[in-house]
């Protein structure tokens, strides 16, 4: 059983391995999609997910190569293996998509997300929030006598954990960027 020889998004552990092991188990995958930075390209990607009923857990996009006019879209999505394979193939069909990488299957990768938390309170809760922020290596980026704004960076699970801890301590508002991800190694 050989992998198929495809131009787009080809890698040693191909995102286009068309002989996947199908199961009904819903998996979470992180996809890195390199696109031409032209008007409407994000709408094409989002429209594909909406039109075909796929999930988006998070999506981030920014230009990463100004000269080559390339943007990198990092999408965290969920689905059965068959759906994940369809998502990748459908993304690959978009004319302005250059590469599709499934970081979840292409080997180890790092995922990072930035989040900003506003926590309001006083007395013991305020002290506890600051102490936990220190443990999580969150920075205080704004402070009043009755509130803090923490900035925290890390894997999504770490940010979830920090949010759980802040909730009883006066969590008011959260802003998260969504995941940016890269494969590990050279």
């Amino acid at each position: 059983m050989s992998d198929l020889n495809l131009k787009k998004g080809t890698s040693a552990k191909s995102a286009y391995n068309l002989r996947p092991n199908f199961s009904d188990i819903v998996e979470r995958h992180t996809l890195a999609v390199m696109v031409e930075n032209e008007p409407g390209v994000l709408a094409r990607v989002i429209g594909l997910f909406a039109g075909r009923g796929y999930n988006i857990e998070s999506l981030t996009v920014a230009e990463v190569d100004h000269e080559g006019k390339l943007s990198r879209i990092t999408i965290v999505t969920t689905g059965t293996p068959q759906v994940i394979e369809q998502i990748k193939a459908q993304l690959g069909r978009i004319v302005t998509v250059h590469e599709v990488h499934d970081l979840t299957v292409e080997g180890p990768s790092v995922e990072r997300e930035l989040a900003i938390f506003k926590v309001a309170g006083d007395g013991e809760k305020r002290v506890e929030a600051l102490r936990l922020a220190d443990i999580f290596r969150a920075n205080v980026v704004d402070s009043t006598l009755k509130s803090f704004v923490f900035e925290i960076t890390g894997a999504p699970e770490k940010i979830d954990a920090f949010a759980d801890l802040m909730r009883p301590l006066g969590l008011v508002e959260v802003a998260r960027t969504g995941v940016a991800a890269l494969s590990r190694g050279g």
Partner: peptide, 17 residues
């Protein structure tokens, strides 16, 4: 010729793009 046609509806044993 379209990779997305393969395994979209019916699982196949010998895919050729």
């Amino acid at each position: 010729i379209d990779p997305s046609s393969i395994n979209k509806v019916i699982r196949v044993d010998i895919p050729i793009v």
